[in-house]
Amino acid sequence: MKKVTIADVAQHAGVSKSTVSQYLNQRFDYMGEQTKARIEEAIAALEYSPNIVARSLKQKSTTTIGVIVANILHVFSTHVIRAIEDVCNEHNFHVIICNADDQPEKEKKYIEMLRAKQVDGIIAVPTGGNVALYQDLVKKNFPIVFMDRLIHGVEIDTVLLDNEKASFLAVEALVKQGYSQIAMISPFLDPNITPREERINGYKKALEQHQIPLEERYIVPSAISEMQESIGRMMQLPNPPNAIIAVNDRVLKQVLTYVKNQQMRIPEEIAVIGIDDVPYADIFSPSLTTVAQPAFKMGEKAANLLFEKMQNKERSNQAQIYRFEPELIARESC
């Protein structure tokens, strides 16, 4: 069958091709309701489908952005994605979601795929393993924004939490309740994964400020798959901790599973605080004290920054870092 064109729609509606084009691009400023109705009827009658590729070439925009997250299983990732999608919907943009699993090779493939699809910009939680690739994007003035992580040697605007303050709030809440043997559980530390490094540093600084001696064995970095065993070894110390801070939501789940398996009572036998609020925090028994990061606001900020860059591709002289404030949500677990 012959492909229906804008000219066919225009002829059926009794208007010019430029009027149909204005309708398709939602430029209705000088278009009467009857004209819009005729065009709409013509599109439906002819089953017209716009040529998205041709329109993209003409407008030099695919009205699409890419979002690369480190691990889509994190509550933070899903909230950020939702916020970005909301902003993109307001701008009539589409979003391609990519999960890099913190693997530089996978991240590289996604960047290359998104560039091949000619997305207008990228928001990424970078692995840190593709510095040269990101530097090349910056050199070409390609619109890009980083989330959650600082990558040294790359001048890209970054949106992230004040991670040290998040740990400080957790330690302070425990100290106020009389706890002084405070542990912090984390996935393996990696200089490219900013939140882990900064939250551990914040924990150490908070202990020092409260004049609590640092017990190195209370800092437990471990693979998620081995975390419960690692916690168990720590709890076998001659003087085990009486409070645990989970560095993120996935760690919190492992801590709670260990506590349940050991039939320990929260907070009587062990106090627990998680950095990152989780959906089940207020319905868990006892309800969980958490340090929340404003993920929706952070996602909105990243998306708005990207749209500013896409509208004005002139690169600024220096990348900006946008830190967001954490919030302690006090409940019953400490």
Score class of each variant (00 low, 15 high):
residue 218 Y to R: 02
residue 281 A to Q: 06
residue 208 E to F: 11
residue 9 V to H: 08
residue 18 S to Q: 10
residue 146 F to R: 06
residue 276 D to V: 10
residue 122 I to R: 03
residue 322 Y to A: 07
residue 106 K to D: 04
residue 61 S to G: 06
residue 111 I to P: 01
residue 237 L to F: 04
residue 53 V to M: 15
residue 35 T to N: 12
residue 99 N to Q: 04
residue 77 S to P: 04
residue 217 R to H: 11
residue 76 F to I: 06
residue 154 V to C: 08
residue 17 K to M: 10
residue 73 L to E: 15
residue 164 E to G: 09
residue 219 I to D: 00
residue 162 D to Y: 13
residue 73 L to K: 10
residue 334 C to N: 14
residue 221 P to V: 05
residue 33 E to P: 09
residue 229 E to I: 13
residue 98 C to L: 04
residue 165 K to D: 10
residue 307 F to R: 07
residue 12 H to L: 13
residue 140 K to N: 11
residue 310 M to V: 10
residue 270 I to E: 05
residue 268 E to D: 11
residue 188 F to W: 13
residue 303 A to L: 10
residue 12 H to A: 14
residue 56 S to H: 07
residue 12 H to K: 14
residue 89 N to F: 12
residue 258 Y to A: 00
residue 160 L to F: 10
residue 245 I to H: 00
residue 96 I to N: 03
residue 154 V to Q: 06
residue 303 A to H: 06
residue 323 R to F: 13
residue 9 V to Y: 03
residue 295 A to D: 11
residue 148 D to K: 06
residue 267 P to V: 01
residue 289 T to L: 08
residue 143 P to E: 03
residue 182 I to C: 00
residue 180 S to Y: 14
residue 286 P to T: 03
residue 324 F to V: 11
residue 141 N to K: 15
residue 142 F to D: 00
residue 68 I to T: 02
residue 307 F to E: 07
residue 220 V to E: 09
residue 121 G to Q: 10
residue 53 V to P: 01
residue 164 E to C: 11
residue 12 H to C: 14
residue 14 G to Y: 05
residue 249 D to T: 01
residue 242 N to Q: 09
residue 185 I to V: 13
residue 296 F to Y: 15
residue 70 A to I: 07
residue 151 I to N: 02
residue 72 I to K: 02
residue 209 Q to D: 12
residue 199 R to W: 02
residue 98 C to W: 01
residue 259 V to N: 02
residue 166 A to H: 02
residue 145 V to Y: 03
residue 70 A to N: 11
residue 103 Q to W: 02
residue 128 G to Y: 05
residue 164 E to H: 04
residue 43 I to H: 01
residue 191 P to E: 08
residue 332 E to V: 00
residue 106 K to E: 09
residue 97 I to D: 07
residue 52 I to M: 15
residue 253 K to I: 12
residue 135 Q to M: 12
residue 57 L to A: 04
residue 224 I to D: 11
residue 67 V to N: 03
residue 200 I to T: 09
residue 16 S to R: 03
residue 196 R to M: 08
residue 280 Y to V: 12
residue 252 L to K: 02
residue 98 C to F: 04
residue 134 Y to C: 06
residue 215 E to A: 09
residue 72 I to H: 08
residue 231 I to V: 05
residue 289 T to C: 09
residue 209 Q to I: 06
residue 313 K to A: 07
residue 202 G to E: 02
residue 81 I to W: 05
residue 224 I to S: 12
residue 170 A to S: 14
residue 117 K to G: 13
residue 70 A to M: 10
residue 229 E to A: 15
residue 165 K to F: 02
residue 172 E to N: 13
residue 270 I to L: 11
residue 280 Y to M: 15
residue 69 V to K: 08
residue 151 I to E: 09
residue 121 G to M: 05
residue 226 E to C: 14
residue 141 N to S: 13
residue 313 K to S: 07
residue 322 Y to I: 15
residue 302 A to H: 06
residue 270 I to M: 07
residue 97 I to F: 07
residue 249 D to L: 07
residue 298 M to G: 08
residue 200 I to R: 05
residue 185 I to Q: 01
residue 189 L to D: 01
residue 244 I to N: 00
residue 154 V to T: 12
residue 233 R to C: 03
residue 248 N to T: 03
residue 293 Q to L: 06
residue 211 Q to C: 10
residue 240 P to I: 00
residue 196 R to V: 14
residue 66 G to N: 06
residue 319 A to S: 14
residue 61 S to W: 05
residue 80 V to E: 08
